[in-house]
Amino acid sequence: MFKFISTFRLQFLIIATFIGLFMLMSQTHTNEGTSRFQSVVQTLTYPLQASVNSVASTFKNLWNSYISLIDVNEENKLLRQQLLDIEEKMNQHIENSVQFLRLRNQLLFASKKITDKIFAEIIGESADNNHDISLINRGSNQLVQRNYIVLRKEGLVGRIQSVSPFQSSVQLITDHRSRVSSLIQRNRIRGLIYGTHKGLEMRQINQHANIKIGDRVISSGLGGLYPKGLLIGWVKEIRRQKHELFKTAILDSAVDFNQIEEVFVIVPSKTDSHLFIE
């Protein structure tokens, strides 16, 4: 037996490696959390990513400031004219906004939820082509936790997938694993947003549902992960086939995922914390 093992030790080593790798894969897939190995690699690569990102941003800003100096005189004249128009409009808006603020404060008082936002910069993205993951420069040291929601003012970006001390990975809603329960804002028709790597699709819409191109799509709050009312996008195209039970809407996402540089991580209030328990 020992002789057999020693004769085929190389083959045994290779088979043992494969078994080890499959066990590792199954374990990390079942746990769906941040593995220690991932945390170590991300912690080690963070200084490099953060420093390069910082240098690149500085150069980008310098270049942009140089570009903006060109044609500055003509732009200045145009802006002065626009300023006069805007001042006139502003007077009207001030009057409207006073009224708006008063009414909004009344409404907020009724449904107040204390949530903190953590500002984060995007410092990298997934190393492969198969996943839509972005890396942000906030991690467990800044109290970021798995499944926290990531937003921009334009709309929903994704959720925190894994956390290491200095950085976290964000699973974008365009990732093929992402599912967001959603509804059409106009008539509350429900569907499920699937990430398709290239964009977003709202599937499982009733075949007879009345949806139109340009309809706003928001999160429905079902499922507990994403809060209700976050803007996801607009209907761009509707696909339906007679033999299918459901129809599909192709969406224009509210967030331009190729352009995002900063995001907000939403820290849920204590009353919402049950939503984030794994």
């Binding site: 490696t17 769906e32 190995f37 690699v41 997934s126 993951i133």
Partner: peptide, 26 residues
Amino acid sequence: FLGMLAGLMMDALSHGIIGLYGTSFF
């Protein structure tokens, strides 16, 4: 074997399932 390690690093830098690229690289 080093390729397998490279694959594991690729796993850590892209998604959550450690061992996926490790296996394919190896």
